[in-house]
Design a protein around this nucleic acid. Structure first.
Lengths: 174, 174
DNA sequence: GATGAAAACTTTATAAG
DNA sequence: CTTATAAAGTTTTCATC
């Protein structure tokens, strides 16, 4: 196997099945904003005919560059207009504690996003709630029911300035 | 008009066009995970026949409970696998400064989310980058090019535990 | 609400330039 | 890549129970 030369070298950053060209990125950029465009409309927007456009979309789905299609739900409409960030610090940091804490977060519906982070605290959690009363109950009845929390600090969002689900794939880093 | 009794009282939390029943919430909950289900498949999942199911979806779209449909883009596939949070504090906090800062953030593609918050800092910003080098350039060439920043603090995400775009509408708050 | 039907459009696949 | 074709499925509207 020593003589085999692959197209991609060991350290190269690459997605599941090869790099994306500009047309792929345009397709992703458009679908990122409207996931229900028909092949015809999409192809017109990216400057390609429908047939190869469709093939590319299927490839992007298969390679995992498109992770899925979702409906965006208005949080006010479902009665959860408030966004709160909780910085959580755990007592201990071994694998078992982290795994159990992570699993517990997955089961709490108020928790919309959760990140294990490096810094002054361990987890940054984004929470959707109806109001301060609901958040207080969330802390008492759900978050602090999980064992292992040393402390938490809350930051309330006053206003969402920008709220995209994903980055625009037209951003290419030199 | 004093004698008119509306169904909704003044302080009641309510969405654009009336409350959602359980079937509506089920529809939203399913579409939140698969925004491209056909009316037939969706209606089977929520226990309704296709025709009224379709009517409900259109109503949810028109009322704004469904804010749109999008494709989820894999950040690794587009070369931006790293998520970073920046806590930004501004020099001053008058309306003009906040408005200009907010507008500037909207134009930076690395900024995926941005919230004006109450607490130790003013803005919590979620950033998608290729790596630490890219983040450093983002800070120097983009974030700190915006006037009015007193300081910023960075928190690196080590791992995304939960990553939903929206809350599950089946969560109903008592 | 359920069922059924019809027109327009979309998806998917395939063939030829 | 483009254009073109065609079957199967989906959306949308509308009528009836």
């Amino acid at each position: 196997m020593a003589s085999r030369q692959n197209k991609r070298s060991a350290g190269e950053i690459s997605a599941v099945a090869g790099a994306l060209d500009l047309v792929d990125r345009k397709i992703l950029s458009v679908l990122r904003q409207d996931g229900r465009l028909s092949t015809n409309d999409l192809s017109a927007r990216v400057g390609l005919s429908p047939s190869p456009c469709w093939t590319r979309v299927k490839k992007l789905e298969a390679s995992g560059a498109i992770d899925g299609y979702i409906a965006l739900i208005n949080h006010e409409a479902v009665g959860l207009p408030m966004t709160v960030f909780a910085e959580v610090t755990l007592d201990r940091h071994d694998d078992k504690v982290l795994a159990e804490f992570s699993e517990a977060l997955l089961k709490i519906p108020e928790v919309v996003e959760a990140f294990l982070v490096s810094g002054d605290y361990d987890y940054l959690i984004k929470v959707a709630v109806a109001g301060t009363g609901h958040y207080e109950r969330f802390l008492r009845e759900k978050l602090y029911k999980i064992k292992g929390i040393r402390h938490s600090k809350t930051t309330f969002s006053l206003r969402a300035i920008k709220h995209s689900a994903c980055v625009d794939p037209l951003l290419v880093v030199g």
